[in-house]
Write a protein that binds this DNA or RNA. Sequence first.
DNA 1: GAATTGAATATTGTATGCAAAAAACACTAA
DNA 2: TTAGTGTTTTTTGCATACAATATTCAATTC
Lengths: 230, 230
Amino acid sequence: MKKLGTRHENLDFKVYRELKSMIVDRKLKPGDKILQEKIAREFGVSRTPLMCALKKLEQEKLVQAVPRRGFYVRRFTKEEVLEAFELREILEGLAARRAAHIISPAQADRLRGFFRDADLSDSAQSIKRYAEEDRRFHQFLIELGGFDLLNDILENYNIITVSYRIDVMEGLVRHPRETLPEHEALIEAIASGKPEQAEKIARQHFNRSRQQLMKDMLQEKMAGTQRQPA
Amino acid sequence: MKKLGTRHENLDFKVYRELKSMIVDRKLKPGDKILQEKIAREFGVSRTPLMCALKKLEQEKLVQAVPRRGFYVRRFTKEEVLEAFELREILEGLAARRAAHIISPAQADRLRGFFRDADLSDSAQSIKRYAEEDRRFHQFLIELGGFDLLNDILENYNIITVSYRIDVMEGLVRHPRETLPEHEALIEAIASGKPEQAEKIARQHFNRSRQQLMKDMLQEKMAGTQRQPA
DNA sequence: GAATTGAATATTGTATGCAAAAAACACTAA
DNA sequence: TTAGTGTTTTTTGCATACAATATTCAATTC
């Protein structure tokens, strides 16, 4: 018995995806109110599926619902971003551990291909390419070691860490020269099937980025003008 | 400026809570189809807020939506339950670590009160009381060391582990005689402010339960008749 | 001019209506 | 019987309608 039947995709899901990418791409900015009528007209749907989509996004914390007022694009606090990093630290640590457990030789080969010809210069171009490779690498790691529940969580909460500071160094927290050795060590630990080591390295990797982020945030606070409305 | 204003609770949220407890309490059983018209009438609301509530539950994996067919109460696979345990292992490990970091003397006192007068006999009554204490303990641990994101995730996925096998030994996977020393060690590690140790113990605690569960499941498979419909 | 009030307007939360899809049923032919 | 087919009934997905609440803004008072 086949199961390929699910071709009908409900409108609310399409709206959900569209809205989500609008938020991640900053077409809707943090703090913006979401005018249901307007968006619904823009998308050519009624408010019913839009409402559903908004509720979904609320659950993912991308928007905030204020009863009888409406939905607003959420503005993440520094604390939340750091907390999201803390979660990634252990969740991707888990993924790394599992990946090392179950990796196949073919997958190990593919894994070893990541960052092979990384360019560590400071040009915007090379930073950008490294950032892309970084995302692909973490994606592959999750595919390797993840499972449904874990993937769901990571998908939801990576967005918080990604959508913050997207404008600085392509979203990278640390310079490739610093992270490349860590990536290489992680790759080797997973590819050679060392779960404990893989988890440890993955966690260290995120931990260091988190520490760096904390420092950056502190500096920002000292230096700059802080907009932080209610 | 105060902020106590949020008194309006939308209908969909009430429906959501009600449905959720119906599922957890087995008033709606795994596999049951959710007849929207019927439930809506039962709750005295229209299908609109019910729909929203169902979508929320879908995101939490308590129900499954099949487009153009409807919603069904989800039946968890063994794999999923084990995966949920694996998640709890690291997530509550994190909570334990953080708790040990930030615990106050007053909280440490309260923590040490858990399981103080535990009764390790085999009577149904005492097992039941231990299971309740267990839940309260883990809840307190999450309150201590958790944060918003973590709480959300744990709330969702604990349900998977709790709603499975609720009928055997009050949902406990291992006997109190086995888990009590672990609980005591964990309490002491947190109360005396030892983050690394606390995390390690918490993880071991869950890991052992997970191993036990795997064994149990394997035995069930060997022995019993397996209902596992599509 | 600043603060306060209150009507006019806009927006939300929910119920209802309706077309399209799925399920249930009844009837016919092997 | 059983398999197949057309028809009725049910149910879903979505649009729309409407009352209740929020917001806006002009008029009024201090």
